[in-house]
């Protein structure tokens, strides 16, 4: 399974390096979202500092939705999915590969967005280790849920509208927990981020397990 996952990671990262869609299109769009949020909050500095954790994760969520769409359009546009099935790769490995690639892409984007909230919203970062842990756990959970629903919606004609309808509500608990944990680590709320990190961990494990189990039947009938 891990060997197949590595093959998928290499394939998707190679495609991403050549096309540079995440860096050239998704990342600028995420920065635009941050700027638009500032307009919506009337560029009030105090409000922006307080809202920075939530706005950061909303920008991540919308960007993730685009990245998932991109991840599955790679497979459908040139019948790559059929090729993967013919190669006899383990569906669980394909799923894990897709999730890891999405996590890597989104982590790069989150670093850019992190600079964005520091520069644009004057947010102050405290505990880097915890911030990175929260970011990786949340992104892993979101990527796992997104890959399942991306695969579910990928072969329907209405996938563009169906994917956000399925993916956004399911990712709301991750968004809530990640925002709460970030609020603590950015110093906007006093408290501990540990309970939220635990919830994020549970989410990531649950969605990864469901994905590994469900990806086989999903690939079989496509």
């Amino acid at each position: 399974m891990l060997h197949d996952a590595l093959l998928i990671i290499r394939k998707d990262l190679k495609i991403e390096f050549r096309s540079k869609v995440t860096t050239n299109q998704v990342a600028p769009m995420a920065i635009v979202i941050l700027i638009l949020f500032a307009f919506a909050l009337d560029t009030h500095q105090h409000k922006l500092i307080l809202a920075a954790p939530g706005l950061f994760w909303v920008a991540v969520l919308f960007s993730m939705s685009l990245a998932i769409h991109r991840s599955f359009s790679i497979e459908t546009s040139s019948s790559t999915r059929d090729g993967l099935r013919l190669l006899g790769l383990d569906p669980g490995g394909i799923f894990l590969g897709k999730v890891i690639v999405l996590t890597i892409e989104m982590f790069v984007l989150e670093i850019i967005l992190g600079f964005g909230i520091v520069v644009l919203y004057s947010a102050t970062l405290h505990n880097y280790f915890l911030l990175i842990s929260i970011t990786i756990l949340s992104t892993l959970g979101l990527a796992a849920a997104g890959t399942i629903f991306g695969s579910l919606a990928s072969s329907f004609k209405t996938k563009d509208t169906l994917l956000p309808l399925l993916f956004l509500p399911i990712s709301a608990p991750v968004l809530l927990s990640a925002t709460k944990a970030f609020q603590t680590e950015l110093g906007t709320v006093i408290g501990s981020s540990h309970p939220w990190i635990r919830i994020l961990g549970v989410f990531a494990v649950v969605y990864l397990t469901v994905g590994v189990l469900a990806f086989g039947p999903l690939l079989e009938e496509q």
Partner: peptide, 23 residues
């Protein structure tokens, strides 16, 4: 919404079942 999509009934049913379990 997933259940109402046009297409092969068995394919739709399987996907709906997975979505229901996740939900």
């Amino acid at each position: 919404a997933l259940r109402k999509l046009p297409g092969d009934i068995n394919q739709r049913s399987k996907r709906s079942a997975i979505a229901a379990l996740i939900a």
